[in-house]
Amino acid sequence: MFRRADLRLAAAGAVLLAATSLMPGWLLVLAATALAKGIVALGLLLLMRAGLVPFGQAMFYCLGGYAAGLGSLWLGIRDVLLLLLLAGLAAGAAGWVVGLLIRRYRGIFFAMLSMAFSMILYGVLLKSQDLGSSDGFSVPRPTLLGLTMTGTPALRILFAVTVLLTVLLAWGVSAYLRTAMGQIGPAIRQNEVRVSYLGYEPDRLIHREYAASGLLAGVAGALVAMLVGQVDPGMGFWMTSGEFVFIAILAGTGGIWGSLGAAFILEAVHAIAFDVAPTYWRLILGGTLLVMILRFPAGLSSLAPRRVRRA
């Protein structure tokens, strides 16, 4: 069950945890956001292996954020882990429901239909004046196992939770990808008809993976909501989805390292560009991404040695 790759994952997590106490607040937020986006990318990895790219994953990210926010405001749940669970379940359930319809679609129509749903959610949230419309509402600092958290220590704890969760979920995804079910994704991408002749049902597999990717995005949204302390409909806007797709494509379909690495690189480039050129940061971001697409056709995961890529 445990492989060298898993040990590597655990080691990376341990390094990040050890570094926690050294990192200033801004870096904690930056790194935790990157990890959370990496979690979304892990979900996209499942779908991309089957050749599907949803252009509306921000819907689940946004749902997760709102679920965490409303869970603490309306239901009085304050514990980080419970809120994450709630957000994951809510987004996963939404993914399952939407998946009932969307599992029949492929290619660009899959992408656009998922975007349509996410934009409908965006529109509904914009019209929800009680939830603050485009301004959103603030999410109170959560507690962890009964402990109240404030200030920078709270960030450290949230960051540590994010790291542990990322390691856990990445391990889960890579373990899934090694199972027989997990191997069917690429087969669907190559030839769906043959897969169904083999006795598998591509629609059902895609449905399951879509719901799972929704769950992952929901967890990520909840993490970011608690980290930032605010949710707003912009989390569900198509530009957010575009960013996730960008991370996923940058990552390639080789495995979890690509997804996590791509999320980190995007956040870092974004942050540096923001500092260096406050007016023209898009130019730097776009230029970097264009060069990466042109130079690394199979995504970042193609850079890793063969051994790692299988992880």
Binding site: G25, W26, P278, T279
Partner: peptide
């Protein structure tokens, strides 16, 4: 000057950067 764009998560981490870095 800092651009007020890129969403709330970005703004919050940039705000921390302004103060701390």
């Amino acid at each position: 000057f800092l651009d007020e764009n890129g969403g709330n998560a970005k703004q919050v981490s940039e705000f921390r950067g302004l103060a701390e870095r």
